[in-house]
Design a protein around this nucleic acid. Structure first.
Lengths: 187, 187
DNA sequence: ACCTGAACACCGTTCAAGT
DNA sequence: ACCTGAACACCGTTCAAGT
């Protein structure tokens, strides 16, 4: 499958080398024939990204097994998210940095995957803070997870220069713990 | 100046069209001559990014004038950061998405600018929570600002799909307020 | 039905040669 | 001292033509 070659190329050579021609070469075909399986390069990247999101989702689901306490589950999700980003930096960045040109045409499936992910967080928050109304829960899920995402991206791109070991993990722990503590203190 | 042309090109046509050839064309020179002023395309992007960070910094400094309360200052910084990102999405993204190939060779000036920015946050946190030790302050500045950054990037790339108007601003307010509240509740 | 190969309009980068 | 212009090795994309 062409997708496999694309992913290998991406991890081995980086995003700039993920070209239609290189993918074709790697599977022993000619450049033009790739356009029978992908609409264009955007489409190729999009399919790689869907795969990446599916893998991430599977790992997140996996990490929830066995954890009972909602706060522990949220911490586990945060750690897992960060760990995935650190394990697959190139693929993970591609998900968020790739711009589709004809917006909202193609990425409907992608948006659903991202939404589903926020709902995972929202469900845990609803559980631990049952007094929050649905709007507040949505908001909390988005700002908390936006936060974890930001730490992950700054860490991966080397913009943090933090001290200690596993510095980004400490930041995620800090953000989740402090935010949840703030949630408990009513407004 | 070539830099001006590069920035105009970037805002008008997007990051993919920011090519050495297009910049040269726009200022009436030939492609090769650009290499007398920039080392290569990476260097060109780096210089654009430095300029962007300088502008952002100036706006952040400006927003602090007049605000006395540290919490209000942190909120103002968050809103200003987000507003800048929304006003210059392409340039702002380029700062964080551009990868220099020969790492830590070139971007020393860039790193200092980013560090200086975290220190701006850390100073406000130190002021409002004087009982925190220096490590905790650094950590708080990084996780809180990583968080604001994450919301900004998800918002700009259309991955939030939040309700209400100025949705990202509401998230930044929520994150900052809740995090600071969490900071006040000792561990 | 499936793939090739050539073509077109682009890139980044280098470097002799011109003024 | 400064710039050009051609060259090289790449891109994405299309599409006649081959099997």
């Amino acid at each position: 499958m062409a997708l496999g070659a694309a992913i290998a190329l991406l991890e081995e050579e980086g995003p700039d080398r993920l070209t239609t021609r290189a993918v074709a070469r790697r599977i022993g075909y000619t450049a033009g024939s790739l356009y029978f399986v992908f609409r264009n390069r955007d489409d190729l990247v999009l399919r790689v990204n869907e795969r990446t999101l599916d893998e991430l989702r599977a790992e997140l689901d996996g990490v929830l097994d066995g954890q009972k306490d909602s706060d522990a589950r949220l911490h586990a999700l945060g750690r897992c998210y960060l760990a995935f980003a650190e394990r697959h930096p190139t693929r993970w960045r591609l998900v968020f940095e790739h711009d589709v040109l004809d917006v909202d045409q193609v990425p409907e499936a992608m948006r659903r995957k991202i939404d589903a992910f926020f709902q995972l967080i929202a469900a845990e928050i609803a559980r631990r803070s049952p007094s929050l109304d649905p709007d507040a829960i949505r908001r909390a899920a988005q700002s908390l997870w936006g936060g974890v995402h930001g730490i992950a991206i700054l860490s991966i791109t080397g913009k943090l220069r933090a001290g200690g070991e596993r510095p980004a993990e400490a930041l995620v722990e800090d953000l989740v713990a402090t935010y949840l503590r703030g949630l408990d203190r009513a407004r």
